[in-house]
Each structure stands twice: as C-alpha cells, then as structure tokens.
Design a binder for these strands. Structure first.
Ligand SMILES: [Mn+2]
Ligand SMILES: [Mn+2]
Ligand SMILES: [Zn+2]
Ligand SMILES: [Zn+2]
Lengths: 136, 136
DNA sequence: CTTTTGCTGCAACTTAATTGCAAAGATTAA
DNA sequence: TTAATCTTTGCAATTAAGTTGCAGCAAAAG
C-alpha cells in the first residue's frame, strides 16, 4: 500500500495538512466515504475545505466518485496505476443492509457492446444487494 | 406501444389527471426525465404532486429511476413486462455532450460474477460518453 | 346522502452541495 | 531578507434537489 505522501507526489497534488488527513482517512476505510462521513470523522477540519480537497483529488485522479443512490456522493481512493480511463473501470457494490459501498476491483469488468457510434468515456456501475457479511 | 391507461391498469395504479399527464410526458420523451424536467414541461402541475406521482410510479414498477451523476435523479418508463427484478436490469447511457440519459434496452446485460456470498438485488448501471448523435 | 379514503396544491422545511470572501500560509521575484 | 504573488483554508451564506404537513377537493365505499 502506498503512503499518503507517495500518492500525492505521484499525482502531483501539493501536500497540505487537510489533504493529508483526508487522504489518510479515505485509505483507512474499506468502504467509500461521503463528504458527511469524512466531516464526521475529521471534526477539526472544515467541511468546505474537505469538499474542495475532494474536488482536487478527483481532478487529479487520486480518488474517484461513486453515486450509489444513497443521496450522497461517495469517494474511494483509486487503485495504484489508475488513470480513471475506461480500462480502469470497475463495478461497485452497495449493500442494502449495512449501507456500505465499495469497489469491486477483483470482479472483471466486461466489455459492453454499445450501439453503433457510441463511445464510452466513463461509467458509474453500482450493483445493489447483500454483501457477504449481510447475506444470511 | 401501450397507452397510458393500459399501463396504469396493468400496474394497478389508479388513473388520475396528474398521473396521466406525467406518464404521457415520460412516454413522449426518448430520454429519461428528472423531476425538474417534468416540472418545466408541465407548468400547470404542482411539483410535489409530480414528486409523489413519481414515487407511486416507482413503487408500482411503472417507471424506474436512474442516477446518472447529473445531480438529479432521472426517471424512465419500464419496458413492457418489466418487474424491476435482476432479469430486467439494463445499462443506461449518459451523453457527456447532449446530457441525455436513456435506457439501453437492446444491449445485453452480462451476468456479473460477484464474490462469494454476495447477492444482487438491483443495479444502477450508467455508461457515460458520447452518443451517436454527438460522436463526430 | 354520508362517511371514508385517497389525491392534489401550496407553503414550508431539510439537507447535500457549492460559493464569496477575507485571513493565513506558501512560493516566487526582487 | 523583504515584497509581491499565488494557493489553501475557515467561516458564513447561498443554492437547489428532495421532502413533508396540512387543508381542501374528489372519488369510492357504505
Ligand atoms: Mn471504485
Ligand atoms: Mn432504464
Ligand atoms: Zn452488508
Ligand atoms: Zn449526445
């Protein structure tokens, strides 16, 4: 696992106190985090600073966002080498029971046969159901 | 194409003026519609009535919702026979240029190999890119 | 006809997301 | 080192989507 500083250096994002603490938090969680989640975890850091940090991270491919239908956009750290291109696409899983959302990096992403002349650039793929912890 | 009244009768949703006009509007559009879209189109119909109509439609599988990342939930009429079950899943396409979102009913939905013990119940699959009209 | 139930319109509210602005901090130029 | 410039941060305020309470109206049931 890369360190916070390594990631920011590679993605050419200047290291600051807020960025360090936000990225450290995201890395420490196995599930994707909403702005509210981060706000609650980092009680001493201002919401708008976190918000702008997330925008900066997303622009620079440090993280990617997921709309899982919970009403809040979630954020997860990109995998090493990810450039947020079609080849980096992966599914996400939202558990209807425990409400966790996470990246399914290990599930192969199937090539989708789009209609003539359509061009894929990104995707937001969210599978909803029960995770292994909740499926009894 | 089924008529508004046929659809509502089959889905056991009582026919009312607001429901008729909302469903007629959804059927007349080739792209998925947000609450705001519908509100703008139906200037004489109250927003909260449209909102509650959409909830009723969704509960009764008349329509399904799509989160395409535009910040507004979009709604599209379900295909004939759809019961909003895993077998009815399909991809959606959001055009980054013309901002239209629509159902790709004709693109086969590939079965996804989930990790051990995961159970799929629904999905929100949105492919983003350029539609054939905008891909030049 | 009377009662009950559901639908609608209006206004108000909630909350996630976003922005303006000024102070603080960091970087660059002199 | 100092001055000028650019970036980041915190705070307060705003925006906008979504949601709800309530009263009046209409349809359905008794
Ligand atoms: Mn992911
Ligand atoms: Mn659809
Ligand atoms: Zn779970
Ligand atoms: Zn287009």
């Amino acid at each position: 696992m890369q360190t916070v500083d390594e990631i920011l250096r590679i993605k050419k994002v200047k290291i600051t106190a807020v960025r360090t603490v936000v990225l450290r938090h995201l890395l420490s969680q196995e599930k994707a985090q909403s702005l509210k989640d981060i706000e609650n975890a980092l009680v001493h850091t201002d919401r708008s600073s976190i918000f702008r940090t997330l925008k900066t991270f997303e622009e620079n491919k440090v993280i990617h966002s997921i709309e899982d239908g919970s009403g809040m956009v979630k954020y997860a750290v990109c995998a090493k080498g990810c450039n947020c291109e079609p080849k980096d696409l992966h599914y996400h899983f939202y558990c209807n029971n425990c409400n966790k959302t996470f990246c399914l990096f290990d599930v192969p992403f199937q090539n989708i046969e789009l209609p003539e002349n359509f061009k894929i650039q990104q995707a937001n793929m969210v599978i909803k159901g029960l995770c292994s912890d909740c499926n009894h």
